[in-house]
Design a protein around this nucleic acid. Structure first.
Length: 648
RNA sequence: GCUGACGUAGCUCAAUUGGCAGAGCACUUGAUUUGUAAUCAAGCGGUUGCGAGUUCGAUUCUCGCCGUCAGCUCCA
């Protein structure tokens, strides 16, 4: 134990140091300028700061601001600087936690009155002072008892401290100026490293994420090493606002919400067109291997008791009053699974028939808590491109691969990239541990066999089985779960599902729940933001806007419009107002093509094509050639409208 | 559901300390017939989210409810 630690530098050189040596000394020995640039170090793959004594050897790398790992260190230190500033201005504020997060950092405070925007401005100004003071982050290792004294006035910290009782965790504190925090680190050497930061907003957050505990005031902020990076980040936030599907949904006339039905979208004619186009696309892709069925939306509780929803999901279900029983013993379906199971169980199946894939687009209702509702991404009424597959256990691997290709191929059409996540058993669940063991093992093996990279989501499975989630990142950087493949060993038991095997005996099939878009509502929200409302031609509610230059040409334009419509193109004629005005309207509505018809075009049987977003650059083509081109793009589901020299 | 903010014409927003509720766009009408991002003019449009309270007087102050937003919790 007392032997020297061996540190291997990136160039292969080694250093032998005594345990307890500070990384700072090692870095200084490499070079004084490196010490100035050092933010932290990595020892054997673990990031630690310059003032935490070395306890093990291994690969030793100096982390400067160019290392991506440095950002989390800077931001965590930013959280301390924030707390330092808040404590200077509001000494009575109790401190919670202040970690770095994906896009920045936050710190939770317990205060009597929530912070105002003015408070934030004052805190930010004070933070600049703290940074200018270049206060070193001083690390100290303390005993449980000592820490109890230091944080005697901070009940939240004391509670955290109590968690360490009996563990051999080294308890450390960090002090910058007059502020000391219970913290594992690592931190940047001093507060002057924090140069480019911004406090963004405040929000309530439960202490330790528990809704039964008190609400703290959280301040969100971000920090970067370079001003350009901070500016780019703030610009991204602005851009995300510009693409917000709730804003575009209104300006592009796609959907609306009314207070009389919170959380349920009203689709306008244009939005409905978009919705149906997507539904049609899924239907077309499913034609060959899936069986589409339509099932009721209203069921008695008997079904939900059998499925387990009545016990585990009731609070999310809309219960309906039944006049005959005088009870709320009926419900709108929150999921399609049980209806499909009923179907399957209604007659005998041979092992030769499997897999059987029932697909459904029926409307679902889930009673989300009011605060969870958000645009189209979180609604109370929605439809999934849902499917339940009944198969033999020996078919799982092939089926998972088939479904995965099906789902990823769908996303490819939109240019969306998905992250695969494997989600395991949640705390609230049905079924024995043995059943879960085998379901998780089987799904994981199937996933592994595809050779695709995936991440883990422990405890995030459905209450009836483990799942593979397909998470897509939207323009704001939020990740949304869209598609899912869920393996279910419970439903076959509960619904007594069987098939007759080769041995002429009854066997249990396995059920796979599958969705591709997740829900059409959420998927459309992602698409609106993904394309910033400028949909590919095949998706655009209106594909061509026909614009005659003067009223005299209205008849010719009408004929052209009819020709396009007859060819299956969603074309609309617009005659009133000036040409400039109508072009502006079409651009604002993000119609992919404008077909302008003047005297020259009318005589030649041509149109002057203007492509969305490409300005006055125009291309004069024959009506027939244009129709063929657009039809080709629609059939190919091309991602962008083609201008001269591109496309068909 | 919880914490906070917000809710004014169809839309986007104004309205000194409580004192006659405005503008642009949209819409209607008239004129204009336009060659690639807003032609001109006039007109119409409001129980200031809903309900109480304070006040001589409430868009403005207070309370309750509804909805939306930022988060928390939850989630397709």
């Amino acid at each position: 134990m007392s032997s020297l630690l061996i540190l291997t530098l990136p160039d292969g050189a080694t250093r032998e140091v005594a345990p307890g040596t500070l990384p700072r000394e090692v870095v200084a020995s490499i070079g004084p300028r490196l010490l100035l640039a050092a933010v932290a170090v990595s020892v054997d793959g673990e990031v630690q700061d310059l003032v935490t004594p070395l306890r093990k050897g291994g690969a030793f790398t100096v982390i400067t601001d160019k290392d991506p790992r440095a950002l989390a260190v800077l931001r965590h230190s930013g959280a301390h600087v924030l707390a330092t500033a808040v404590r200077r201005l509001r000494p009575e504020a109790k401190i919670g936690f202040g970690p770095a997060i994906d896009d920045g950092f936050y710190y939770d405070f317990e205060v009597d009155k929530p912070f105002t925007p003015e408070d934030l401005a004052a805190f930010e100004a004070e933070m600049r002072k703290v940074a200018a003071e270049k206060l070193p982050f001083v690390r100290a290792e303390v005993s449980q008892a000592e820490a109890g004294v230091v944080f005697a006035d901070d009940p939240l910290k004391l509670e955290r401290l109590a968690d360490f009782e009996g563990s051999d965790e080294v308890i450390s504190t960090y002090t910058d100026g007059g502020f000391t925090d219970l913290c594992r680190g690592p931190h940047v050497p001093d507060t002057s490293h924090l140069k480019h930061f911004k406090l963004l907003h405040t929000a309530g957050a439960y202490w330790r994420g528990d809704e039964k505990r008190q609400m703290l005031q959280r301040i969100y902020a971000t920090a970067f090493f370079k001003k350009e990076e901070l500016d780019a980040h703030l610009h991204r936030i602005e851009e995300a606002k510009r693409r917000d599907h709730r804003v575009l949904g209104k300006s592009l006339d796609l959907f609306q919400f009314f207070p009389v039905s919170p959380g349920s979208a009203f689709w306008t004619p244009r939005g409905t067109q978009l919705y149906l186009t997507l539904e049609h696309f899924v239907r077309e892709r499913q034609q060959e291997h899936f069986l589409e069925v339509k099932t009721p939306i209203l069921y008695t509780k008997k079904l939900w008791e059998q499925s387990g929803h009545w016990g585990k999901y009731k609070e999310n279900m809309f219960l309906v009053y039944n006049n005959e029983t005088e009870e709320h013993d009926t419900s709108l379906k929150p999921m399609n699974c049980p209806s499909h199971h009923l179907f399957y169980a209604s007659h005998k199946h041979s092992y030769r028939e499997l897999p059987i894939r029932y697909a459904t687009f029926d409307v679902l209702h889930r009673n989300e808590v009011s605060g969870a509702l958000s645009g189209l991404t979180r609604v109370r009424q929605f439809a999934q491109d849902d499917c339940h597959i009944y198969l033999r256990k020996d078919q799982i691997a092939d089926e998972v691969k088939f479904l995965m290709d099906f789902i990823l191929g769908y996303y490819d059409t939109f240019g969306l990239a998905a992250t695969l996540r494997f989600a395991t058993r949640p705390e609230v669940r049905i079924g024995s541990d043995e059943l879960w063991d085998s379901a998780e093992a089987a799904l994981r093996a199937a996933l592994e066999s595809t050779g695709r990279a995936y991440e883990m989501k422990p405890g995030d499975g459905a209450f009836y089985g483990p799942k593979i989630d397909f998470d897509v990142t939207d323009s704001i950087g939020r990740q949304w779960q869209l598609g899912t493949i869920q393996l279910d060993y419970n439903a076959p038991e509960r619904f007594d599902l069987e098939y007759v095997g080769e041995d002429n005996a009854a066997h249990r099939p396995v059920v796979i729940h599958r969705a591709v878009s997740g829900s059409f509502e959420r998927f459309i929200a992602i698409l609106i933001e993904h394309f910033a409302g400028a949909f590919p031609v095949w998706l655009a509610p209106e594909q061509v806007r026909v614009l005659p230059i003067s009223d005299e040409l209205a008849d010719v334009a009408k004929t052209v419009t009819e020709q396009m419509k007859a060819a299956g193109i969603r074309a609309h004629l617009e005659t009133s107002e000036s040409l400039n005005y109508r072009i502006r309207q079409a651009e604002v509505m993000k119609v992919p093509y404008m077909a302008v018809i003047g005297k020259r075009e009318a005589e030649a049987g041509t149109i002057a094509v203007r492509v969305r977003g490409e300005g006055k650059k125009q291309e004069v083509v024959s009506v027939d050639a244009f129709i063929e081109r657009v039809r080709g793009e629609i059939a190919a589901r091309a991602l962008t409208p083609s201008s001269e020299g591109q496309g068909a």
